[in-house]
C-alpha cells in the first residue's frame, strides 16, 4: 500500500497498490527481467512549487523528484534502468473547471505532463497509460508480471 506522496518497490510475489488517485498520478516502473516493480504516488508536478522552504521536503510528492527517487530505489533492488517499462494512471480533473477557475486547479493535466517529461529525460519508455478523465482510480501492480490493474467507481476494472 502506497499513500499519497509515497513510493514503494517490490519483487516477484508482491503487489503494490495505491488508492483514491484523483488528480494525483500513480506511476509504475517494471523491470521484466529482474521482476521488480515500483510505484510512486505523485501529487504535484514540480518541487519548484514548494513555497515554504522551512518544512522538511517530501520528495515523493513531486513528479520531478519522486520519479527519479523511484528509479534509484528500483536500482538498489538490482533492477536495470535500460529495461524499465513505465505505466501511469490518474491525472483526472475531479471537478469541472470553469473559465473563472485558476490555472492551478488544472493540476491533473500538469501532473501528467510533468511525469512524461521526467520519463523522457530518463529515457524510460511509457508503454501504457490510463490518464485524464473526471474520475478517481485505484491501481495495483503485480511485481512479477508488471500488469497494472485499474479500478474506478464509474468504469469498473481494467488492466493495462
Amino acid at each position: 500500500m502506497v499513500g499519497i506522496a509515497e513510493l514503494r518497490v517490490a519483487a516477484l510475489g508482491y503487489r503494490i497498490r495505491t488508492s483514491g488517485l484523483g488528480s494525483c498520478i500513480g506511476l509504475t516502473l517494471f523491470d521484466p527481467i529482474a521482476r521488480i516493480a515500483g510505484l510512486v504516488h505523485v501529487m504535484l508536478p514540480t518541487i519548484v512549487d514548494m513555497v515554504r522552504a522551512s518544512e522538511p521536503i517530501n520528495r515523493a510528492k513531486y513528479a520531478d523528484t519522486g520519479v527519479p527517487d523511484l528509479i534509484e530505489a528500483m536500482k538498489k533492488l538490482g533492477a536495470k534502468q535500460a529495461r524499465f517499462e513505465a505505466k501511469m494512471a490518474g491525472g483526472a480533473q475531479m471537478f469541472a473547471v470553469g473559465k473563472n477557475q485558476p490555472e492551478r486547479l488544472r493540476i491533473g493535466e500538469r501532473n501528467i505532463e510533468a511525469c512524461k517529461k521526467v520519463l523522457r529525460e530518463q529515457h524510460i519508455r511509457l508503454i501504457a497509460e490510463d490518464t485524464g478523465g473526471i474520475y478517481g482510480r485505484t491501481i495495483e501492480i503485480d511485481a512479477g508480471t508488471g500488469r497494472l490493474m485499474i479500478r474506478s467507481v464509474s468504469h469498473g476494472i481494467k488492466e493495462i
Binding site: S19, G22, M43, F95, L105, G136, T138, S152
Partner: peptide, 15 residues
C-alpha cells in the same frame, strides 16, 4: 459536484 472515491476528491482540495 461529483460522486467518486473519497481519497481522489479530498486530495484535490488539498493540492
Amino acid at each position: 459536484f461529483t460522486v467518486d472515491m473519497a481519497g481522489a476528491i479530498l486530495a484535490y482540495g488539498l493540492i
